[in-house]
Design a protein around this nucleic acid. Structure first.
Lengths: 114, 114
DNA sequence: CGGTATCCTTTATGATACTG
DNA sequence: CAGTATCATAAAGGATACCG
């Protein structure tokens, strides 16, 4: 086995081991993840709806970010076995809890220009 | 950079905030940037001090992240023409203002595991 | 409809050598 | 001491095709 170093270990796990802030930022660091959370909270809870309201993003990338958000426990998906299949995304309590903090970041960002 | 998705006027303020959130996360998205801000706030205000307290990071990468933080107006550098040269980094008001928000993110992160 | 598989491009990070 | 230049690698993002 090859010895693990910080450069070949899992980036995610490494960043999380560094500190909680780094870990939190890593979870939100996907390019569209914050937007996805906000849009889901606004009722855009379907794959195709998200594609409509997000800036142009490929199926592949949107799917990956949704998978990662689900893996992090920020969203859940409910698969309804209709034809065609229907999937409803919704925020978990954890996902909802981060939105007010994101709002604070937005306010901070507004003031940055002075 | 993030294009607003037009739906209706009542969403406008909300959508602007979406863009600001994305912008704020972008500023903080560098791998070591949040850590750098925190360590500077704790008095680790020299290049070599930062190297000591951060996880292993190359000169090149640390230098780049410091440059970017300065460009974003989160830190300033004071160059003192001694021999050898001395540089003091410090937080701007903007840089200091984001730290409490990062703390909230850390608390949120702590609770994520249930 | 709601994705995944595959392949490609761009960006971020990293190692090393060198400089004022 | 405090970096930058150069080159290399890793990770993220994206285009396209296809599947249940």
């Amino acid at each position: 086995m090859i010895k693990e170093t910080s450069s070949n270990a899992s980036n995610r796990k490494f960043l999380r081991s560094v500190c909680r802030i780094t870990g939190a930022l890593e979870i939100l660091s996907g390019r569209w993840k914050a937007l996805v959370l906000i849009h889901i909270s606004e009722g855009k809870n379907r794959f195709s709806l998200l594609k409509q309201v997000l800036p142009p993003v490929s199926d592949q990338v949107l799917g990956r970010q949704l998978r990662e958000l689900e893996a992090e426990g920020l969203i859940t998906k409910a698969i309804i076995a209709e034809v065609p299949v229907r999937v409803d995304y919704s925020l978990t309590d954890k996902g909802a809890a981060v939105l007010p903090i994101l709002d604070e970041l937005a306010e901070w960002y507004d003031k940055r220009g002075d």
